[in-house]
């Protein structure tokens, strides 16, 4: 058993991590909360004034907020649908016997390691550009008019890019789970004459369901904060067509210098993320006990 001595040492050793994270969370977050009740613009320093919930009123009734909220939802939902269905399909495929499985897995995982600014700019310029992009070349070769992705479907284009980045994550985790499936059970079902589809629905999918939920929750946390991909491709435009909450708060505070309004937006973003985080924490917490 641990001695008193080591117990004291242990409390001492954990304290730097706890204090740092406490400072990181409490100090800036309470500052944001405080700023959100001020009329505070970086262009007129020293003129800060307490205005109660006015910033929230402005932020939450601004048409830009509704546009951003809708875009945030579409972005998260769109990427989730693509990566989860694609991830399940790819995991099933990669679990089949084949030659060079290790290499294929490496090819599939690679996009996850590409930094967001690189993947966004490569897709934007070398693939989706209406003049010189590969898609434009392909369209011309087939006698079609090239499509200007970022002018006519900015949010869709960003969803495509982000889905490409996150598909490997879903695939990798679902594949790991699939490989832990008891193969004897599948063989037994096969012997009993269960068809492919019914084996998938009754054995494979239930086995994966927990992991799918975890992937959904973790991705949602990250997808709510998508920023770089929007910054380097559309700057949130045209208009607010590809602005999400994260980008809206950034624009309000660092481009328009409206600290008060931006802070109110930041708090709204924290509340939104927390709704997802509560579910995720519950699942992780359950696993920790086991």
């Amino acid at each position: 058993m641990a001695t008193d001595h080591s117990r004291i040492a242990a409390r001492f050793m954990i304290s730097p991590a706890v204090l740092l994270l406490l400072g990181w969370m409490i100090v800036p977050l309470s500052m944001t909360l405080y700023f959100s009740f001020l009329d505070y613009n970086l262009l007129s320093p020293g003129m800060e004034e307490w205005i109660g919930f006015m910033n929230y009123e402005y932020f939450l009734t601004d048409p830009a907020f509704f546009a951003a909220l809708g875009n945030t939802f579409l972005l998260v939902a769109g990427v989730l649908v693509i990566t989860i269905t694609g991830g399940v399909a790819l995991a099933l495929l990669l679990d089949q016997p084949m030659w060079g499985q290790g290499i294929v897995r490496i090819l599939v995982i690679a996009p996850f390691f590409v930094m967001p600014t690189v993947s966004a700019l490569v897709w934007k310029n070398m693939f989706m550009n209406p003049v010189n992009g590969l898609f434009a070349h392909a369209a011309k070769a087939m006698g079609l008019a090239p499509f200007d992705f970022f002018a006519h479907a900015p949010l869709f284009s960003i969803i495509m890019i982000v889905a490409w980045q996150w598909l490997p994550f879903a695939t990798l985790i679902l594949l790991t789970v699939l490989q832990s499936l008891d193969k004897e059970q599948l063989e037994a079902a096969k012997m009993d004459g269960a068809r492919k589809m019914s084996r998938f629905v009754h054995i494979i999918l239930p086995h994966m369901s927990r992991a799918i939920t975890v992937v959904i929750l973790i991705q949602t946390i990250f997808l709510l904060s998508i920023f770089a991909e929007i910054l380097v491709t559309t700057n949130g435009g045209p208009g607010y067509a590809s602005t999400n909450i994260t980008y809206l708060v950034y624009a309000q505070s660092l481009l328009q210098f409206d600290v008060g309004g931006g802070s109110a937006g930041g708090i709204v973003a924290v509340v939104l993320a927390n709704i997802v985080a509560i579910f995720l924490m519950r699942m992780i917490g359950k696993n920790l006990e086991a």
Partner: peptide, 27 residues
């Protein structure tokens, strides 16, 4: 050297990771 509160500390640390960066950008 786990203590009674270890699990809570772990979960709390995790929760800080779920704080959206934009919530603390300005400060």
């Amino acid at each position: 050297v786990p203590a009674k509160g270890t699990k809570n500390v772990l979960m709390w640390m995790l929760s800080t990771k779920m704080l959206p960066p934009v919530g603390v950008l300005i400060p």
